[in-house]
Design a protein around this nucleic acid. Structure first.
Lengths: 140, 140
DNA sequence: CAAGATACTGAGACTGAGTCTCAATCTCCA
DNA sequence: TGGAGATTGAGACTCAGTCTCAGTATCTTG
C-alpha cells in the first residue's frame, strides 16, 4: 500500500518507479524502528541487490516527501529515518550517557504544535522533538 | 554573570578557565540569535584573537553542559547554537523552501514535556523541537 | 622555589555522512 | 524508431567535526 502512495507521489512529480526505488521501498518497509541509510545499503547488499549508495540517498528524500517515512532523529551527524505508522507520531527521549532511546507518544503535544502552526500560518509536514538527558539507569 | 556560571562548571570538573575559553565565552555572549561554530571562529579571527578551531569545538560542549548555550537546530549537517536566555526556551518552525526560521514559545508544550520525562524517570537537560514545512509566503 | 602531574593549546591530518559529476542506460511517447 | 528526459553507479569530492601529538601553561605539594 505504501508502494501505491509512493508511486502516486512519483507520478505527480513526473518521476519513475524504477527497480532501485522499489528495492529501497521494500527494504524500508521491512525495517523495524529507526534505521540509517548505510544500514539500508548493507541489507540490500546482503540480499544480493545492487542499489548504489547514491540511489539510496536520492530515494530517501522522495520517500519522506511522499509520507512513507520521516526523519526521526539527528544524532552524531547522521540522519535516522523511521517508517510512518498508522499509529500516532512519536518522539524521543535520548540518553546521552548510554545512548538508549525511549519513544513516547503525546497527543496533547501534537495538538499544541498544530495550534502553533495555525497561529503562524505555517504548513507543517513533519517535526522532530528530541529530549536529551539521562535515563533512569544513568541518572545520578 | 554567565562567566561565573561557566567558571563554576569548569571548577566542578577540574578544568580551567583559560584565555581561549574566556574569549569563546565572550564572543558567544555577544551573539544575537543562532550561530554556528565556524561563525564564531571568523568573528574571533576578525578581532585579532587566535583561538584555534579545535579549541572552539572543544569549548562549545562545555558551554552547553554549563547551561550558557544550547544546541538549537540541526540543519544541513551543522549544529547551530543559541544563548540560553532568562526568557522561556523557544522552538522553531523551519521553512524548507525559503529557509526562514520562526521562533515560538509554548509553555504548555514545555510543561507536557516535563510531564513525559517525569513519567519515564528521565532527567532532561535540553530538548529541540523542530517543525518543518512551508511558511506563509511559501505555502501554495 | 623546584618538580612532577595534569590540563590545555594549535596545526594539521583524518573521518565519514552525504553530495555531485558524468558517461552510460533506460523508458516513455510521438 | 528516435529522441527527450529521467535514472543509474562509480567514485571523486565536500566539509563539519574529531583526533593526535608535541609543546606550553598552570596547579600542587614538599
Amino acid at each position: 500500500m505504501s508502494e501505491s502512495v509512493f508511486h502516486q507521489h512519483l507520478r505527480r512529480k513526473g518521476l519513475r518507479l524504477t527497480p532501485e526505488r522499489k528495492a529501497v521501498l521494500q527494504e524500508v518497509a521491512a525495517m523495524k524502528g529507526h534505521f540509517e541509510p548505510e544500514e539500508l545499503l548493507l541489507r540490500l547488499r546482503k540480499k544480493g541487490l545492487t542499489v548504489s549508495r547514491a540511489s539510496i540517498y536520492r530515494t530517501l528524500p522522495l520517500l519522506v516527501e511522499s509520507g512513507v517515512i520521516e526523519e526521526a532523529i539527528y544524532k552524531d551527524r547522521k540522519t535516522r529515518y523511521e517508517r510512518c505508522t498508522e499509529k500516532d507520531h512519536h518522539d524521543h527521549l535520548i540518553c546521552t550517557s548510554c545512548g538508549s532511546i525511549i519513544e513516547f507518544v503525546s497527543r496533547p503535544i501534537e495538538a499544541l504544535q498544530e495550534e502553533v502552526c495555525r497561529r503562524h500560518g505555517f504548513h507543517a509536514y513533519s517535526h522532530t522533538l528530541e529530549i536529551r538527558g539521562l535515563c533512569q539507569e544513568c541518572a545520578p
